[in-house]
């Protein structure tokens, strides 16, 4: 994506006159855009009326002191993608040349932690992952937040929905046993927040899938990066404005589809109060049955924990 395109996107966002907008820089690897590109884009963003919040999800390999200073000075929250300890991470994420990436990622992560700007880690869980060793690793990092995602690609190391549910349930047990309020697991916390009548932050727990747009490097707009490329393309920012896209037939059709999905869930599923509807893409591409089964088994553990603590407080 060019700086000119990003500036154009920011200007289009500004014309929407929203109170606050979060820009989530991700990829691929967003830092490949370069420091000069980030600086120029950010300066332009700052010249506009809209209040922007910036988050970056990166593999951390390119992070150096200059990046850390930039992020810190400009209020960016930075998350690192790291999949577990050295063995596990290197299995999941070799460099293109086949060499290991773990130490390069860890070096970047440590710089962010030392500077106090690490927004946490996100790990893709493959079939080799063990909950206990993963949780020990997370504790060793000094981060305040972590989250896990299933590896559900066509890769040989992918976990099945049952694998991931089993891993997550064990991880949840370790998390509550550790009982450290300074170590947040966003998915578990989100389920609990929903059960307590609050509002989870994660999109797939909030029933608010239509609060986002993802813009590809060529300017194509999708409801979510997980829904590209597909028939869900909404338009292109170099041809149409975001305002036009938001009032388009395609956008309204997508929102209608979401409304149907969430309404069906709400009416038919006893766990909707915790679940919040789940990730649209995972449901569309991987099927309701296996996806919901795993998710509901995790929710059962969270619900039990919430109920026990509520009973104790009553």
């Amino acid at each position: 994506m060019t700086v000119e395109m990003i500036k154009r996107i920011f200007e289009q966002i500004d014309r929407l006159e929203l109170d606050q907008v979060t820009i989530s820089w991700h990829g691929g690897e967003p830092l490949l855009f370069g420091k000069n590109g980030f600086r120029e884009a950010f300066e332009h963003q700052r010249s506009l009326k809209t209040k922007f919040r910036n988050v970056v999800q990166t593999n951390g390999i390119l992070i150096d002191d200059e990046w850390v200073d930039f992020f810190k000075e400009n209020g960016f929250l930075v998350g690192i993608s790291i999949d577990g300890d050295e063995s596990l991470h290197n299995y999941n994420r070799p460099l293109r040349n086949g060499r290991d990436s773990f130490n390069l990622v860890l070096r970047g992560l440590n710089k962010l932690v030392d500077a106090g700007i690490c927004g946490g880690i996100i790990s893709v869980i493959s079939k080799k992952a063990q909950a206990k060793s993963y949780f020990d690793f997370v504790q060793s990092l000094g981060v305040k937040s972590f989250n896990v995602k299933p590896c559900n690609s066509q890769w040989e190391g992918s976990s099945t929905p049952d694998d991931f549910a089993g891993f997550s349930k064990e991880l949840f047990g370790l998390w509550i046993e550790n009982d450290d309020p300074q170590l947040d697991c966003r998915t578990f916390k989100g389920f609990a927040e929903n059960l307590l009548g609050g509002q989870a932050n994660l999109c797939h727990q909030s029933g608010r899938c239509s609060y986002f747009m993802s813009i590809n490097t060529n300017g194509d707009v999708y409801p979510c990066d997980e829904l590209m490329p597909s028939e869900n393309r909404l338009g292109n920012v170099m041809i149409s404005s975001l305002s036009d896209i938001l009032s388009s037939f395609e956008w309204n059709s997508f929102c209608s589809k979401l409304t149907t999905i969430y309404s069906d869930c709400k009416e038919s599923c006893p766990d909707y109060d915790a679940c919040g509807g789940g990730c649209t893409s995972e449901r569309l591409f991987h099927g309701d049955e296996s996806y919901c089964k795993g998710r509901r088994s995790i929710i059962a553990s969270v619900r039990e924990w919430v109920n026990a603590n509520q009973a104790e407080l009553a």
């Binding site: 979060t22 989530s24 998350g79 927004g119 893709v124 590896c151 992918s158 999109c203 997980e226």
Partner: peptide
Amino acid sequence: SYTDGPGYSDHSVP
């Protein structure tokens, strides 16, 4: 005040 979307929740696979 906000909801964290797809990028921040990192749906990426390796």
